[in-house]
Structures are given as structure tokens and as C-alpha cells.
Simulated scan of single mutants.
Amino acid sequence: MKYESFHRMAMKDLIDEAIMDEESNIPLKNRLIKRRLMDFRAYLLDSGLSINRLELTFPESRHFIGILKWGCLI
């Protein structure tokens, strides 16, 4: 997955990191996952990805937050 490759971390490690932030009661705006998603979005834009493709790709990554936040698929 491109998101994993970009951050050079396995999805399990990214999930564990997000869970740790949540359990530490870090506000959503300061969590590592937000910074990682914004960095990934910037990377996609800088790589010349079209806006249409970005709109298709980025929501898939944001979907990951919904799974973590609500514990289910949304």
C-alpha cells in the first residue's frame, strides 16, 4: 500500500501508533495520524497526481481514521 510505503511503516505499526495517541488523550488536531495523513496528501499533490485521482485516493486513507475513531467501518 502506498500509504505504508510512504511512511516506511507496516499498517499494524501505524494503527498501534494511532491507538497510543488516542489512549494518551492527545487531542485529535495534535495526533500523529493527522500529520501523517496531511504529509501523505501533500506528497500525492507534489507527485503530480490529478485532483480527481487525489479525491479518489485520499478518502481511502481518511477511512482508516474512521475505523480507529469509531472502531468500525464507516
Rank of each mutant, 00 (worst) to 15 (best):
R36C: 10
E23Q: 15
M20F: 10
R35D: 07
I15T: 09
L32R: 09
I19N: 04
E23L: 13
K12N: 09
D39P: 05
L14I: 15
N25M: 15
L32N: 14
S5Y: 09
K2A: 03
K12I: 07
K29A: 09
M11H: 01
L14F: 04
K34P: 00
I26Q: 14
D21A: 15
L28D: 08
I15V: 10
L37N: 02
I15S: 09
I33S: 07
S5R: 03
E22S: 12
M20D: 06
Y3Q: 04
P27A: 11
E17D: 12
M9V: 00
A18K: 11
R31I: 03
D13L: 15
I26G: 13
R31Y: 02
N25S: 15
L37T: 02
D21T: 03
R31L: 08
R35A: 15
K29T: 06
H7S: 08
N30Q: 15
A18F: 05
L28E: 14
I26K: 09
E4S: 05
I26W: 15
P27D: 05
E4A: 07
M11A: 06
D21C: 00
L37S: 05
K12F: 03
I33P: 05
L28P: 03
R31E: 09
I19L: 05
L37Q: 03
M9G: 00
D16K: 15
R36G: 06
L32P: 04
A10V: 03
A18C: 11
L37W: 10
R8L: 04
M38C: 11
R35K: 13
M38T: 12
E17S: 14
I33C: 02
